[in-house]
Computed example of a mutant assay.
Amino acid sequence: TVGRVMPHVEVKIVDPATGLTVERGTAGELCTRGYGVMLGYWDEPERTAEAIDAGRWMHTGDLAVMREDGYVRIVGRIKDMIIRGGENVYPREIEEFLHGHPKITDVQVVGVPDERYGEEVLACVIPRDPADPPTLEELTAFCRDRLAHYKIPRRLEVLDAFPMTVSGKVRKVELRERYGDGG
């Protein structure tokens, strides 16, 4: 969680498609406004308009859920969200689950194009033992009855390492580009 709303600050969670505030317990985009929110990007009105709406709400790009007690939990990024057959799939949820697989050291989940469903779930994994990586069948069996069927990865790529930025973050965009055409 990232905690509760601070005094003199407003927070709302909205449906990214409609902009309407969602009920507590429902994932949506985290928006905030108040004294600590930037006024805009210096000399960049277009970027400012993309980030801050007419009501002065800053759209963070973070997917979040607010609990009934007011605590907010970040569940991912909008640009990382996978839409598979009309269902919103949050890669972070699947990644956290797959970290429990005994053959996986690290995992990144991305959406790749699919003719039937729009996007499909791809798991890119770094195995604990490169000589004995998990198979797609093992991954599917591990997920079955524990994840919703539309969240189960339909594709698997076993990697030695993830592409990284200079600041040490995984370049999910590169994974989508690399494997989006079938590998």
Rank of each mutant, 00 (worst) to 15 (best):
R154V: 03
Y90E: 06
V65K: 08
E93R: 05
G28Q: 02
E96D: 10
V125P: 10
V14S: 05
K79W: 00
V166P: 11
G19M: 03
R154F: 00
D15Q: 06
T21N: 01
H59Y: 07
V110F: 10
D80L: 03
D114G: 06
K12H: 12
E10I: 11
E46Q: 15
R73Q: 14
L98Y: 01
E115G: 07
R178I: 03
G168C: 09
N88G: 02
G3K: 09
R155E: 02
V109F: 02
E138N: 01
A131D: 13
K79M: 01
P130Q: 07
D43Q: 11
P91Q: 07
E29H: 05
D15I: 04
A161N: 04
T165G: 01
V121D: 00
E46D: 15
V72A: 06
E115F: 13
G85Y: 08
R176M: 07
P163S: 07
I82M: 02
F142L: 02
V173Y: 06
V158D: 00
G25D: 10
C31N: 14
T26N: 04
P127G: 06
R56D: 11
G70H: 12
P134T: 08
Y90M: 05
I152R: 01
I74E: 04
V112N: 13
D181F: 13
M6Y: 13
G61P: 01
P16L: 07
D129M: 05
R56N: 14
R73T: 15
W42S: 14
I13Q: 07
V170A: 10
E115D: 15
V173M: 09
W57S: 05
I52E: 06
R4A: 09
R155W: 02
V11R: 09
T60Y: 10
I83A: 06
D145I: 06
L98A: 03
R77G: 01
G183I: 10
D106V: 06
V158N: 01
L147H: 01
T140S: 13
M66H: 12
K12C: 15
E10S: 13
R154Q: 12
R92A: 13
G61D: 10
T165Q: 02
V158S: 00
G36R: 09
R47G: 12
K172D: 08
P45L: 09
